[in-house]
Design a binder for these strands. Structure first.
Lengths: 214, 214, 214, 214
DNA sequence: CATGAATGAGGTTTCATTCAT
DNA sequence: GATGAATGAAACCTCATTCAT
């Protein structure tokens, strides 16, 4: 792996562990056994590292969430999707722990972030629409939009929220899967009988995941 | 107003405006036209200021949200409650913008925060139960708990989430009221016919508030 | 007791306990439950407090060590004298722990200190001469002066020296009495047969004291 | 010379000149024409500088005072030894001016110091034993131990003691040599006839040194 | 590519001292 | 006599960043 990438990985790791404001560029360099000068050879400044981490995040996001065309979204699809979203959130969790501050000081990043969020929104809307088309959901347009917004909010906030809910909380996979369950519990009351079956299926799947990873 | 309180107010103001990590004790002192020494006469350190702000928040919370006994929770009650929760969230929004970091470095605050969250949870559960008892909600116990959790999450995350959703977003009252509407949209599908009327009433109230404050 | 005196006593106590540089004027005031303003009403500055402590020390010194005229110095005399010197050293031990620094920054105190030392020197010389006249010591003039200087040095340095010889050493009475024994061990080889008896008597007295206070 | 060493030397110099508590890290940096940041690049904090100075002292001590085996200690040996001890004391005199305070706040240093003192003690005992074996001293075991303790005390305290004995006293080499003479005057009464010759020889040597350096 | 010493602004905090009441 | 809020210089230390090698 190239030094540049190693820096990004180390920074991500340390940021997640201790919070971005508590990790200095020297920490990152020391963690890798390289000199601060070398770090600054690869990155103009700390912000640029964060930027690059975000770029990786955005890339991960777009790779995993290709627009799935008109193909019907199945429960399996959804399952994969939910898994992936939360795993991403977890991989870049430091980011969510300080989002307002990080974005405030970097307008360019702010823009990129909004673009990514818009993509996420389109994805979720696409899926919801597909579900409705498949008669798994029974909603009018407004309700559908509301639901999508709620789900985006829950997904975006889940990890940050959980870290604050327990002293010294380590975010484990179990916590992630509980987030998925929370989202399913929001969806369930809005499903058709047919949809409900699917949701229950998914719920039992994630319940088991939670137990397995507890 | 006493200097001690002026410091708390100034700190709160500046933290909200620029983020706690970006505001130094010197900033606060300068903003008030007092010496740094004076600030440290009233507070042992910066952390203690944050602590005091939190104490004020907790006090506000408990004053406004006295357990309402067995008295039936009316829609008006709820309206007042929702208003108040969001106003509090707004008043102490800097806090929510950095929660993971602030709590990580101050275990005592972490504990206080958890106690406050527990109180919030009890309140929400109380209200939901009351609604169910009044046959406004149609839910089993699990669903009720799920709902309460979702509402707490949305309430707790709303402001932080919104600040990230628009470039240079100023959190206005309109944004706050949109948060209330978001919560109502989650509740609505779970209501009885009787409950739905109430929700629709509340929604129209908050819609108007949003327009008025846009 | 007047506030002024209480300040002196509290300062002495705290200085001895924690070292003068580590005790602020606020500590002293707080310890007494008075305001810093009040402290500064009675003393122009911290230095003046130290000055006043020294004055008390000098007074104690001169009270106890009146020139004893030509009256023969007996072993009992000596015993009382040694006791008193070391007790004084102990009472004002903070002073000896920082002497170079304290004197450097206060030339007036330096002068007072030298005067006190000169007095001490005269006393010791007087006693030694008296011993020699009583044929307890067998020394020429040079040797007598050397002895006096050594004794003054040992007495002056004993407590400071001991505090550095053991981790977290508390200076107890036993330590003080060991200092006296150390001085006697210096004197003994210089005594006449008659003198030796006396020294041995004194040594056994102080040995017992050490045991009793261990 | 490396910056790290220059810092140590500058600190030593300034501490000796003005007392450790009166010299800040900024003083040291300014004295060297380097930035405070640079100083803190080489040392974590002020304490670490003091620690490093002590390490140098301990190294000097151990280099000069190798255990001299069973080889007879000659008067020349002793002369070299006394010279060296006092020169070391002088080189690191700031240390002796604040010993109780410096050790109190740094337990690790306290331990190192005690180890060094123990080494010193072993050396002195070794030499005294050797003298006795050579029939230069006429002492029983107790007396020998007493003597060693007195000598260690005098050596350890001499410079600190002298700085307090004269206004604005600069410690010169002459003062150092007077310290050696003081120690010899303690030893002399305990020597055999053969030993006395040696002591007188040494005394005349040091008398001349005092005159030359006055 | 890489090193690592160096910078310097600025952060938090301390403390002897003052002064209006 | 006494209070206690207020001052301000200065101490220690951090860290993003630069630059000669």
């Amino acid at each position: 792996m190239k030094t540049r990438d190693r820096i990004i990985q180390a920074a991500l790791e340390l940021f997640n562990e201790s919070g971005e404001p508590n990790i200095t560029t020297n920490h990152i360099a020391a963690h890798l056994g390289i000199s601060p000068g070398n770090l600054y050879y690869h990155f103009r400044n700390k912000e640029e590292i964060i930027h690059s981490i975000f770029d990786e995040y955005a890339r991960d996001l777009s790779i995993r969430f290709q627009p799935q065309g008109e193909s019907k979204v199945t429960a399996d699809n959804l399952l994969g999707y939910l898994d992936a979203v939360f795993m991403l959130m977890w991989r870049y969790r430091f980011f969510y722990a300080n989002l307002p501050d990080i974005l405030r000081r970097d307008p360019e990043l702010q823009e990129k972030y909004l673009a990514a969020q818009e993509g996420l929104h389109q994805n979720i809307m696409g899926m919801m629409n597909s579900f409705r088309a498949s008669e798994l959901l029974d909603l009018d347009d407004d309700e559908l939009l509301s639901l999508a917004n709620t789900l985006k909010l829950v997904a975006s906030s889940w990890i940050c929220y959980q870290t604050t809910q327990a002293a010294g909380a380590k975010i484990t996979k179990a916590v992630i899967y509980q987030g998925v369950l929370q989202m399913l519990s929001i969806v369930r009351p809005l499903t058709t009988a047919k949809g409900k079956e699917q949701v229950i299926l998914l719920e039992s799947h994630y319940c088991e995941q939670v137990k397995r990873n507890a």
